[in-house]
Design a protein around this nucleic acid. Structure first.
Lengths: 129, 129
DNA sequence: TTGCAACTACGAATACTTTCGTATATATTT
DNA sequence: AAATATATACGAAAGTATTCGTAGTTGCAA
């Protein structure tokens, strides 16, 4: 299995997941186009090289500017991180986490409907399990 | 504000939240009574000393074995960690996180009912907002 | 009262993550 | 062709987290 991405690596994966295969320059630009925090080009380069070694990204070296692609799926990675997190912070209870995540009233009405629909589906599934 | 606890610190806070004020020895024993992973006594001591400096725990020094108490609330701490996590791993979308958290079908029927009830309450609240 | 057990304090080793400087190569512009 | 811009590679500094050894203190038991 791949090692879990660190926080910086996750930021880079997020860019690649959203925008598809990119060069280091493109990733670095996108990371920096947000808020004041400016990350050096070689910092991003180094991180992406390490990620390639770990298997988190793959790269196409055929042109001078190497093109990097996420090599791990978004959902699977999130699932892994979620597992670690729910264990570390919520004693392993996903339900506790869900209740806390919804409890601050930030979800929109449409979000709530979507969640309700998922729950209905889960309950129907359980009925036949 | 208090700095967010690290993963190790969170493990210690978890013990204190569950079991109330404890000595270093007691915390260390509880940490080690789980699986094979054995943590040295002075390691736990050092961590708890650092946590005291940070304000994550308070301690009663009146007896030779100092007694430590969690100085930050469980819910508030979880809320802070959840915020960081949802930003880092789910692009800030709590709804995405909730859908993923429920999506693995691990929640029990009772859990789902509880979540549905919270959603109903939120929807009623919104109606008047 | 001597010696052993348990405690705190603290420095420092280890490990992991992030950051960047510098060397070097390749393309592009003038 | 020379100067300039842009790439990669890589070592290493800096920052943070974790771990533990050792010294010194205090309580307790033989």
């Amino acid at each position: 299995m791949h090692p879990a991405p660190t926080e910086s690596e996750l930021r880079i994966l997020g860019v690649l997941w959203d925008a598809g295969p990119l060069t280091v320059r493109e990733v670095n630009d996108r990371l920096n186009e947000d808020r004041g925090k400016s990350i050096g080009y070689t910092t991003t380069l180094k991180l992406m090289q390490l990620m390639a070694e770990k298997g988190l990204v793959s790269r196409d070296v055929s042109s001078r500017s190497h093109v990097y692609t996420a090599a791990v799926p978004r959902k699977g990675t999130q699932e892994g991180l979620l597992n670690r997190f729910v264990n570390a912070a919520f004693g392993g209870s996903r339900t506790e986490l869900v209740l806390r995540a919804l409890g601050n009233g930030e979800a929109s009405a449409a979000d709530l409907v979507e969640i309700k629909q998922l729950i209905e589906k889960l309950e129907n599934g359980n009925r036949h399990a």
